[in-house]
Write a protein that binds this DNA or RNA. Structure first.
Length: 405
DNA sequence: TGTGTGTGGGCAACGAGAGG
DNA sequence: CCTCTCGTTGCCCACACACA
């Protein structure tokens, strides 16, 4: 008989705690309450909670730890929206339905993102490749504490068979999933970007260890250590996303005008803002907009930029951030001209434009046009430099020179 | 070997100004 | 008001080389 006293501790247990807990998180996600991260791919967005993503993926966890932005927007390239949606659903509910045809790519994406319960499935799969694929067309993936089970919905007589058997029966040959390090460079890994700054996951997707994609400058390429990358992302560089607002009300607040007042895709009413601006609307209060990398521009300057094309946006930002003289006398990366020796004129190597501004432009343009490759933006910047140089070297008309004298 | 880069050259669109 | 000319700007292709 247990002795009763005032110090006796009572264990109060909520029997349906886990069920209710997960159900409430699903509700929060469905209603988009307290969401604090946006995943974007294929032009669509999925709002979620960092807490859930971090709990289910060490990759996301590291990503969020290194990027303290209040509401980061993660652009995921080469990831199918449906797969991403399914992964989020899996992380919230612990199970998801996947068509068999989609399973290899789905699991590959899960592996790249280190989704708990699904990466474990792949490890199991790797160890047993000899099993054949069944004829089932739809499966349910569901996570059960420390492992992942795969349940074939089409087989109603299937009981609680163990994970290995289920998975091995249904997964495609592992060579489609488990790639060598060489294959890893062929971009089935979903490159990620936080607010427009890419950090390509490696074969094993170790966040923060990969250089940012468009850090082509040598001095920045060397920043491949986790610490360096983490610092770079955290120390005021988290606001690569659009600094605009998600709704017209904020436009009113910032500009004192309606978002419908402007035309031609210029700043305030650009259609892209909705996907990009959950962060940093506070920067508007000082009439300056952070492009990231410590680069800021005035709102009125930004308003004059055309937003309907990435080329125009790139050129506009270049005109804002660089003087005509800078553009005329410098190149994007400072790389020696390829015809340096063959051209005969042996012109000196142009110094590079400010790398921070270049990266800020690229990040900002990519935050608006995620599908545009950084190299294309660089090319536009190179055009701009060339044109400015041509204008500078153009002979001065006689009449104008006479006037100046 | 594939990709990235800087530049030459050419073309098109646009706007300003002159002339009918 | 219309047309034409000219200059400016933007875009693209091609090329050769650097680099991973």
């Amino acid at each position: 008989m247990v002795e009763m006293s005032n110090e006796q501790l009572f264990c109060l247990r909520w029997n349906n705690f886990q069920t209710n807990f997960t159900a409430q998180f699903e509700t929060l996600r469905a209603e988009e309450d307290f969401v604090d991260v946006t995943l974007a791919c294929e032009g669509k967005r999925i709002k979620a909670h960092k807490l859930i993503l971090s709990a289910c993926s060490p990759y996301f966890k590291e990503l969020f730890k290194c990027n303290p932005c209040k509401h980061p927007i993660i652009f995921m390239q080469d990831v199918e929206y449906e797969h991403l949606l399914s992964l989020v659903e899996f992380m919230y509910s612990g199970e998801v339905n996947i068509a068999q045809a989609q399973l290899p790519n789905f699991l590959h994406t899960a592996e790249c993102l280190q989704i708990r319960g699904l990466t474990a499935a792949l490890q199991k799969k790797k160890s047993t490749e000899s099993e054949k694929i069944s004829n089932s067309k739809t499966m349910t993936l569901f996570s059960n504490e420390n492992n992942t089970k795969l349940k074939n919905q089409s087989r109603t007589n299937e009981s609680n068979s163990n994970f290995e058997n289920n998975l091995d029966e249904r997964l495609p040959p592992s060579k489609k999933i488990c790639r060598s390090s060489d294959q890893a460079h062929h971009s089935r890994d979903p490159p990620l970007s936080i607010d427009g700054v890419e950090s390509k996951p490696g074969p094993l997707l170790q966040p923060k260890t990969e250089p940012i994609e468009y850090f082509s400058d040598d001095e920045i390429k060397t920043e491949t250590s986790p610490r360096a990358s983490a610092d770079f992302m955290s120390e005021g560089h988290s606001s690569y996303s659009m600094q605009g607002s998600t709704d017209t009300s904020v436009h009113h607040n910032q500009f004192g005008e309606s978002s419908q007042e402007n035309t031609q895709g210029s700043w305030p009413n650009r259609r892209y803002s909705q996907t990009l601006n959950e962060t940093n609307t506070r920067n508007f209060s000082s009439n300056r907009v952070s492009l990231g990398f410590g680069v800021e521009v005035r709102v009125d300057q930004l308003r004059g930029v055309k937003w309907n094309d990435y080329r125009k946006l790139t050129r506009g930002l270049a005109s804002i951030l660089f003087s005509h003289q800078e553009l005329a006398t410098r190149s994007v990366t400072g790389q020696r001209w390829s015809r340096y020796f063959s051209a005969g004129d042996a012109r000196p190597v142009k110094p590079a434009l400010d790398p921070a501004k270049i990266h800020a432009i690229i990040a900002y343009v990519r935050s608006v046009f995620p599908q545009v490759a950084a190299s294309h933006i660089k090319q536009v910047l190179a055009y701009k430099c060339k044109e400015c140089a041509a204008a500078v070297h153009k002979p001065v008309p006689l009449n104008s020179s006479a006037q100046s004298i």
